[in-house]
Amino acid sequence: MATHVITGAGSGIGAALAERLLARGDELWLWARNAGRAKELRERFPGAHTLVGDLAEPERLSWALGHQSPPDRVDSLTHSAGVVELGEVGELTPKVWQSVLAANLLAPAELTRLLLPQLRAARGHVVFVNSGAGLRANPHWGAYAASKHGLRALADSLRGEERANGLRVTTVYPGRTATPMQSKVHQQEGRAYDPEVWMPPEAVAETVLTALDLPRSTEITDLQVRPTH
C-alpha cells in the first residue's frame, strides 16, 4: 500500500485523484487549509488522514507541519491546489502577484522541501499539476502564467537535484479542465461556463496515475493533456 500526499483534494483534479487512489486501497494524506476543511475531507474520503496549513502563507507551513505528525514515508506528493487571478500587467497590484505566486509556486516549493526526508525514504514521486499557462503566457494571464512557468522551473531543478536520491518528478500540463477554477476563469472573462465543453478532471487524474504507476526504471518528466474537441 502506497502513501500519497495531495493538495487541492477538495475539488477538481485533486479530488478525482484522491477518489481513484482511495478506491484501490492506498493511504491518503490530504492537505487542508484549516481544521474545518480537514473535517470535510475526512468525511468525503473515509479513512483518509489530513494535514492542515494555509498554502496562501507558505512561510508558516514549517510551523504548521511541525505541530502535526506527517507520515514517515511518502510515496507521492501531488501538488494540485492553485489559484487564478486574471488581469492586465498594467492593472495587477503587488498584492495580487504575491497571492498568486505564494499559492502556486512558493507553497509547492516549501511543502516539497518539508516532505523531502519522507520522499527520499520512499524513493518517491513528486507530481506538479501545472497548466498550459506554464508553457506560454497569453494576455491577461501574466500573474498566473508567471507562477506556472516558475513551477516548471522548480520541477526541473528538483528532478536534477534529487535524481541521486531516487526521486521521480513529473509535470502535467492540462488544457482547460471542468473544475471550480475554470468556472471562476469564465466569470473573470465575462463568458458563460459550460463544463461539458472542457476535459473532465477524471481524465487528468488518470494521467497522473499513469505517471505514478510506471515501473521504477522509468519516468515521465513532462506531459501535456488536451481535450479532443
Rank of each mutant, 00 (worst) to 15 (best):
D222H: 15
G142V: 13
W198V: 00
I13L: 00
G53D: 01
F45R: 08
V208R: 05
H140K: 14
D54H: 11
R226G: 04
Q118L: 01
P200D: 15
R191W: 02
P94D: 10
A143Y: 06
R176Y: 08
P117T: 14
W63A: 15
E162D: 11
H49P: 02
S99T: 13
D156I: 03
L65N: 12
D54V: 05
A16M: 00
S157K: 09
L119M: 07
A137G: 13
A48H: 12
T50C: 07
G36I: 03
R20A: 15
T177R: 04
L212Q: 12
D156E: 15
V197A: 14
L77F: 06
G25D: 11
E196T: 15
W63L: 09
E40Y: 01
V126M: 02
P94C: 03
A178D: 02
Y193M: 04
A23G: 12
A107M: 04
E40K: 10
H140E: 14
A145I: 03
A38V: 03
V96G: 06
E57M: 08
V89R: 00
R33A: 07
L223K: 07
A109T: 15
V52E: 14
N138Y: 11
L111H: 13
A155L: 03
L212C: 07
Q224K: 14
P117V: 09
A38F: 05
S183R: 15
G124T: 10
W198P: 01
R42S: 13
L21I: 04
T210F: 14
T3M: 03
G12H: 01
A103V: 14
R136P: 00
K39V: 09
N138I: 02
P195D: 12
H125R: 07
V127D: 11
V127A: 10
A102R: 12
P46Q: 13
H79T: 11
A146D: 12
G190Q: 12
R159E: 09
E57W: 02
S80P: 09
Q182F: 00
A192V: 09
V84Q: 14
H4E: 05
L51D: 09
R191Y: 01
G90D: 11
T210V: 04
H140V: 13
D194W: 08
W63P: 00
V208Y: 07
G66T: 08
V169S: 05
D54K: 02
R159Y: 11
S62V: 08
L116R: 08
R44G: 04
Y193G: 14
A121Y: 09
Q224W: 02
A102E: 09
S76Y: 10
L61A: 10
G166S: 08
A133E: 09
Y173W: 05
V83R: 10
L105Q: 06
T177I: 02
A9H: 01
Q224E: 15
T179M: 03
G190C: 09
S69V: 11
E110G: 04
V84K: 07
D194S: 15
E162R: 03
R152P: 04
E85N: 12
F45S: 10
E57T: 15
R20S: 13
L167V: 07
G190S: 08
P46I: 07
E110T: 15
L41W: 05
Y173M: 06
Q98G: 04
E91F: 06
K148M: 02
